[in-house]
């Protein structure tokens, strides 16, 4: 059933140090095209540092890392053009209208007027927001904003989209609608790299890595991880790994 999909993220021996502090301690992993990859870890485990490196915003201290086929040391601009990014905090411009936000981001990613128009109406129709296109973003309910922000992040059909806690504070119905959008995008071949504090969402991922203290302590499908740790849920797996760490300190 699983034909070998190409690797779109290849990380070998990634190390990132800030002075004496090792934020990323020899990370090695791959993510495949169209995969939904959950990147979990406690606060301060080193997730944000790794994501910044993968997005071409920060150089690693050492290691061999390719994102969308490009080198993170020398080809950061090519990386940025081929990825999308969305977080709970920074998403869209509150005082632009819905369609202006699409236009702005489409322009940044170098889409033509025609492409922007087509992609905008495609997403507005899908979200049933066509009638709200000219509304200022401030007036749009939060749940919809998150779905809009995701649409904008994949407007230019990137190879990979990075989602940093995309569903924080969102109601349970919208949260699930959001995940349906993630599945659809993955089905179209977009790779999803997602962090979350909701452990039920870890179950929705194809594979999950769990970072503890700068290292990847576990990486597998949710089913295998639960089996490996004799746990009934990903929450239990997470607590076992991250708790063992805080007991050590």
């Amino acid at each position: 059933m699983t034909t070998e999909r190409p690797k779109v993220i290849e990380v070998k021996h990634l190390v990132k140090k800030f002075g004496n502090f090792v934020a990323n301690d020899n990370l090695t992993f791959d993510v495949k095209q169209g995969e939904i990859f959950g990147f979990l870890g406690a606060n301060g485990a080193g997730k944000t540092t790794a994501i910044k490196i993968l997005c071409g915003l920060q150089s690693p201290t050492s290691g061999e890392i390719k994102v969308a086929g490009f080198d993170v040391y020398r080809q950061t601009n090519l990386i940025k053009r081929n990825i999308g990014y969305m977080s709970q905090k920074f998403s869209l411009y509150e005082d632009l209208s819905v369609s202006q936000n699409f236009e702005f981001y489409g322009g940044i990613y170098g889409l033509s007027r025609k492409q922007i128009k087509e992609r905008t109406s495609y997403f507005l129709e899908k979200l049933e927001l066509t009638n709200e296109a000219n509304k200022i973003l401030k007036e749009i309910p939060l749940g919809w904003k998150q779905k809009l922000a995701f649409s904008v992040a994949i407007l230019h059909h990137p190879k990979i989209v990075f989602l940093d806690e995309p569903t924080g504070g969102v109601d349970p119905v919208t949260r699930r609608q959001f995940w349906e959008m993630i599945y659809e995008a993955a089905n179209e071949g977009i790779t999803i790299f997602v962090t979350t504090h909701y452990m039920d969402e870890a179950e929705y991922c194809e594979r999950v890595s769990i970072m503890v203290d700068g290292r990847i302590e576990a990486l597998d499908t949710p089913a295998m991880l639960k089996q490996q740790y004799g746990a009934s849920s990903m929450n239990e797996v997470f607590l076992r790994l991250a708790r063992a760490q805080s007991a050590e300190q």
Partner: peptide, 10 residues
């Protein structure tokens, strides 16, 4: 506990 990981929340 918003934005706090599962262990710290507990």
């Amino acid at each position: 506990t918003t934005g706090v990981d599962a262990v710290s929340r507990m």
